[in-house]
């Protein structure tokens, strides 16, 4: 059986690992541990210092790809070039900002033999931070009140409705708390300069945060779902340590989310449980989270299952996971020759 395992060539993005790390390296670790296939990993990077580029036991070869803001046409050309050399079977994009382009390109990629397993454009748009209030109404889920604004002054009117602090969120990334209007303005400017408009102003929910990562098959079935509680949080709010938990309510909510939206692909739900025990859905990330290796470690290899779904292979839902396993993240200093940096910076390949 083992000897007959097929080998897949899989392109993976998100190889960065700053204090707000990309999921790429964790995804690849899951893929490398897959029981049902072997893989060759092609890293797809945006910047020359993404650590994954230099991890040669993790990534077989890396290519720079153009930033999402340059548009799908140019991305498509670059992927054609890479595909010609590497013959990609699957691409797993891991950044919010690039998903739109990959979703748009998915049919084109498919026609060239590159498989993806992404949410539909409707699902992707509907779950967007900007549309969260409507999402909550449509699927009958608690969501914090929020509004998309185009000028800092629009936030002024919200001051009367919401209590301080306000959560100021970028369209794709970044979220800060603002305790007064000056802070609203400064966060607004900082975040909008990077990620464009609108900015989302959200009511702050007091409580305990839980996260669930999961995988939907696009027909309404839950293939995987693992809830986690953050134990150690960086000042950017990212989990640096967490533990798998047995939370029936969070799993129920996840099943409801998948069955009602017929979610296709991986995702992460950010939940807040308030004092009354009600769960609020804070955000739906339409991709694998950076802490995905915990899910792999407790028995649900989501990257593997996602790859199988992308290939159109039969994929059984995971039935259980180990509760009470922790992940503790650590930073690792690699020693790298300048010549490698030179290669990726000047040739765009390593």
């Amino acid at each position: 059986m083992k000897t007959n395992k097929p080998t897949l060539t899989i392109g993976v993005t998100g190889l960065n690992a700053i204090d707000s790390p990309g999921p790429g390296v964790a995804v690849i670790r899951g893929l490398r541990e897959a029981a049902s296939f072997n893989c060759r990993i092609i890293g797809l990077s945006y910047e020359s210092l993404e650590p994954g580029i230099y991890m040669h036991d993790i990534v077989d070869k890396t290519y720079h790809i153009p930033y999402p803001s340059t548009g799908t046409e140019i991305l498509s050309d670059r992927l054609d070039y890479i595909h010609e050399i590497e013959k990609l079977d699957v691409i797993i994009p891991n950044f919010d900002a690039e998903l739109y382009s990959f979703i748009k390109l998915a049919p084109k990629l498919k026609s060239k033999g590159i498989h993806t397993f992404l949410p539909t454009l409707e699902q992707f748009e509907e779950r967007h931070k900007v549309n969260l209030p409507e999402f909550g109404v449509k699927y009958d889920m608690h969501v914090p009140r929020s509004k998309a604004v185009y000028t800092p002054n629009e936030a002024l009117s919200l001051e009367k409705e919401y209590e301080w602090p306000l959560v100021i969120k970028g369209k794709y990334y970044d979220a800060t708390l603002a305790y007064n209007f000056d802070q609203v303005k400064s966060s607004f400017n900082k975040i909008s300069a990077k990620w464009g408009l609108p900015i989302i102003i959200q009511e702050f929910i007091h409580g305990t945060e839980y996260n669930v990562t999961g995988l939907g098959d696009g027909e309404g079935n839950t293939i995987a779902a693992v809830p986690m509680r953050k134990q150690y949080i960086t000042d950017k709010g990212k989990a640096w340590g967490g533990i798998s938990i047995d939370d029936k309510k969070a799993i129920q909510l996840t099943n409801k989310f998948i069955s009602e939206t017929k979610w296709r692909g991986a995702f992460e739900l950010e939940l807040m449980k308030n004092k009354a025990g009600d769960y609020y859905l804070l955000e739906i990330n339409p991709r694998i989270p950076a802490w995905i290796y915990l899910a792999v470690g407790v028995g649900q290899n989501i990257p593997e299952a996602l790859t199988r779904l992308a290939m159109g292979w039969p994929t059984e839902p995971f039935k259980s996971y180990e509760v009470g396993k922790m992940f503790i993240r650590y930073a690792w200093d690699m020693i790298v020759n300048l010549s490698e940096f030179e290669k990726i910076s000047t040739l765009g390949e390593l």
Binding site: F341, E342, S345
Partner: peptide, 17 residues
């Protein structure tokens, strides 16, 4: 200075293209 146009300043650690 390398032929590919990569320039490295060993005293500052900065690199250029």
């Amino acid at each position: 200075i390398s032929d590919s146009g990569f320039v490295f300043n060993p005293s500052s650690g900065e690199s250029f293209s």
